[in-house]
Every structure is written in C-alpha cells, then in structure tokens.
C-alpha cells in the first residue's frame, strides 16, 4: 500500500496502530476503529457483549473516549433463526450502554457464516494520544487480563472446554478496558496496545519493533487461564497461534526452561484481551495497586524495557 500522509493524521496505518487518530481542531482528534469476527462463544448474547468490548478496546488503548458506534452484521438468514441476531444485538447494546457509547445504526448483509462487530468513533486531545510503539528505556510492562482465550475458544468449537473455563473467559472477554485505560492516563504511560489476534508476543513486538532497546517478558509473572495448559497440551491449539509463532521466530527468543504450554499461551491469539501498558518503573506499582483495588484483579507486571538487541523480545 502506498503511504498516506496528511497534516492532520496523528496515527494511521504505518505502525500497526490499534486505531487511527485524526486531528479535527487544536484540542480535539477523532479515534476510529473497526473489527468484526465469527462467534467465539456459543451464547449469542455473550458474543454480542464480547464483540463490543473488543471493538471499544482499540479506542481505550489509545487513551481515547469512545462516543458512537455502528453495528456490522453478516447473517446466514437461511440457516439461523433471527432470534439469534436479536440476542447478539441486545448483548452488544447492553455493553455499549455500560460504556456510555451511543449506537447510531449499522448494516447487515446475508452471508453463509455469522459475523458481528462494530465501527467505533471516539475522541481524544491530540496531545494525549498514546502510541503503541514508543516505550521508554527502564519502563515496566503491565498486562491487565489473563491470556489463553484463543486456546479455550478452540476447545469450545470441539466441545472440549469445561463450563468453568467457558464462564471465566466469557467474563474476561466481556470486561471493558475502560477503567484500565482511564487509570493508566494519570500514570504517564509511554506506550499502550491491546492484546488481540497476534497474541501477547505479537502485539509486544509491534511495541518494541522500532525501539533501540529490547523487551524482557517474565513468563512466571504472566496471568493466564489455568484450563489453557491441559488443553494446549492435548492439541487444542488455534491455527493463529502457530502462525503467530512462525511469524515472530526471528524476533522472539524463548529461554530454555520456559514450558511449552507457557510458550503457547504467550503466542495465543486473544479476543478482547487486556491492555499492555509500558510506563515508568516508579508509577507501575501504584497503577497496579489501583487496578487491583478496582476489580482488575489479574493485572500483573509482566516485563520490562531493558538494554539489549534492538527490537527483540526475550522471554525468561
């Protein structure tokens, strides 16, 4: 694709940003994003809630405030009852209400496979945009949600996931990244991204790729859904996980002693994953404490920005 330049363009396609940012006036910029996908849980209402939390997350990762949304629906009218669509949209609407986001409309096309998602528009002050690729030397990294949703949703497709695992990932994927985003804003973050299809290591690699130093991930500190361990060991591994591992093989160095299931979890594609926040060491403890006090209980410090080979990730 040819590069796109415009004096008002703040964040665009060039660095795999979570959302685009465009300046409207000296004190206002719009943040825009779109995402839609096939169901990852069986319950339509939950799927709707997850799709909304997932789409809004891109705006939260930039430090923005989502305001409006448009539904995008692909629906197999010939094979699915229309009540399924009604439940999905109801779940989506409830989640938007919780986020104080106003639904303005949407568009539906007939398709062989069900898909739902949204286009979201938010606002932000042009000087307050948090980029995904500007971590600073000495920063610590906070991850706000456990990993493993991709492995467990693969197991759901094969009817191999236990009820407890389904319940836990559903709760996690439905949770908005709003509070985490609002809290990070007062702690001077240098970079932030949300963890989705490229897995923790894929999104982390976008964060560190153009830096002059490297990133260290502490595998023992990673929050994850315990059910993902046995499922990945028995082959419930999404295709995207293998693709992520392949794509990142020259960037990521996994130390000996990191168990294979943990490696899987680090490459596991997430839906509506947490934020990965890079911030000064002196602020990290305070932010983590506040997050845990406000219901983001599984947030953890999972790594640091350290001297070392430019743009690489070392998993210990």
């Amino acid at each position: 694709m040819p590069s796109i330049s415009d004096p008002n363009l703040i964040a665009g396609m060039e660095s795999a940003e979570d959302a685009g940012v465009y300046k409207l006036s000296p004190d206002t910029a719009v943040v825009q994003t779109v995402d839609f996908f096939t169901p990852i849980v069986d319950d339509p209402y939950d799927f709707g809630r997850i799709a909304v939390a997932n789409s809004l997350s891109d705006v939260y990762a930039k430090g923005g405030r989502p305001l409006t949304a448009l539904n995008i629906v692909c629906f197999p009218l010939k094979t699915l009852n229309i009540s399924v669509l009604r439940d999905i949209l109801r779940g989506g609407l409830d989640k938007m209400k919780e986020a104080d986001v106003v639904l303005l409309g949407g568009h539906t096309v007939e398709d062989q496979e069900l898909k739902y998602g949204l286009s979201v528009t938010g606002i932000i002050h042009p000087n307050d945009v948090i980029f995904n690729n500007r971590p600073k030397m000495g920063d610590l990294l906070i991850l706000t949600k456990p990993l493993g949703t991709g492995i467990i949703s693969t197991a759901i497709k094969g009817d191999m996931a236990g009820e407890k695992a389904v319940f836990r990932i559903t709760q996690s994927m439905c949770a908005l990244n709003r509070k985490a985003s609002e809290m990070m804003l007062s702690e001077n973050p240098s970079a932030c991204t949300d963890i989705t299809g490229f897995g923790l290591l894929g999104h982390a690699s976008e964060m560190i790729r153009s830096a002059a130093f490297c990133m260290e991930i502490d595998s023992a500190a990673i929050p994850f859904f315990p059910e993902a361990v046995a499922l990945s060991e028995t082959g419930m591994v999404p295709g995207g996980l293998h693709r992520n591992r392949n794509y990142l093989k020259d960037v990521v160095e996994i130390s000996k002693g990191v168990p294979r299931h943990m490696e899987d979890i680090l490459f596991d594609p997430q839906t509506s994953g947490g934020l990965l926040i890079s911030l000064p060491e002196k602020n990290a403890g305070a932010l983590l404490g506040r997050m845990r006090d406000h219901g983001i209980r599984e947030a953890a410090i999972v790594g640091a920005i350290v001297p070392g080979p430019s743009g690489r990730i070392i998993v210990r």
Partner: peptide, 16 residues
C-alpha cells in the same frame, strides 16, 4: 492436510 492439524494431532498423541 495442514501443518496445524499435523502439529495438533501429534500433540494429542504425545499427551496420550
């Protein structure tokens, strides 16, 4: 018929 299936079926087998 895919690398992914090969890897995943092998994992299942090894775990058993």
């Amino acid at each position: 018929e895919t690398e992914v299936s090969k890897e995943n079926v092998s994992r299942l087998a090894e775990s058993r």
